[in-house]
């Protein structure tokens, strides 16, 4: 049994961290009350955890519940701490590590402004069609596209728009849900 004992990190750990960092998507069910976002974000900064992406919105109005989707990159040991520390916050109901718990869906929405005339404009439209991007605003010299999908798809679309007159991008951050019949 002693063989299981792994050295762990702390202020007093003088050697290098041996565990590799992983990217995990957490879904956090919280009471939608003033200051809840500050509590969650403050916890991450106070304990030195990094946030890659954060999305928050009310999901059940009657029960005043919000769902926070947060993407973190951390070692397995730190991930356990992040989950335990989040669950310790009084307004937090549940924390699910979607990455660890099986198959799940990830989606993000982006609004992308592209300027262009002539051939560029036609090429822009062809690519938008291929990515199923919707035109939500248009002028004779610009488009605003709405595109949803996995972050990697949005990354690709933005990369393609770069030489065609990309002006600016806004992204919502990640929303995620597990597959199958079970709810959170």
């Amino acid at each position: 049994m002693n063989a299981h004992l792994q050295p762990t990190g702390s202020a007093y750990f003088l050697t290098q961290e041996t565990q590799l960092s992983e990217r995990h998507t957490l879904s956090v069910l919280v009471d939608n009350e003033p200051g809840i976002l500050a509590r969650v974000v403050g916890l991450f900064s106070a304990r030195g955890f990094n946030i890659e992406s954060l999305t928050v919105s009310e999901t059940e109005h009657d029960k005043r519940l919000s769902r926070i989707t947060v993407v973190v990159i951390a070692t397995p040991k730190v991930l356990v701490q992040i989950k335990a520390q989040l669950e310790r916050l009084v307004p937090v109901h549940r924390v699910h590590d979607l990455t660890a718990e099986g198959a799940y869906l990830e989606r993000e929405l982006a609004l992308i402004k592209v300027n262009g005339t002539g051939d560029h404009r036609a090429e822009t439209l062809r690519l938008a069609d291929a990515f199923r991007a919707q035109i939500v605003d248009a002028t004779v010299e610009s488009f605003v596209f709405e595109v949803t999908g996995k972050p990697s798809k949005i990354d690709s679309f933005i990369a393609l728009m770069q030489p065609l007159g990309l002006v600016e991008v806004v992204r919502t951050g990640l929303a995620a849900i597990n597959r199958g019949p079970e709810g959170m």
Binding site: M1, N2, L5, P7, K77
Partner: peptide, 22 residues
């Protein structure tokens, strides 16, 4: 270094925070 560790704590965040226990 050579012990099996039992940890009783009411705070789940205290478990495995600093020392990995069995």
């Amino acid at each position: 270094p050579n012990s099996t560790k039992i940890h009783v704590d009411i705070d789940p965040a205290s478990i495995n925070k600093v020392v990995q226990v069995h």
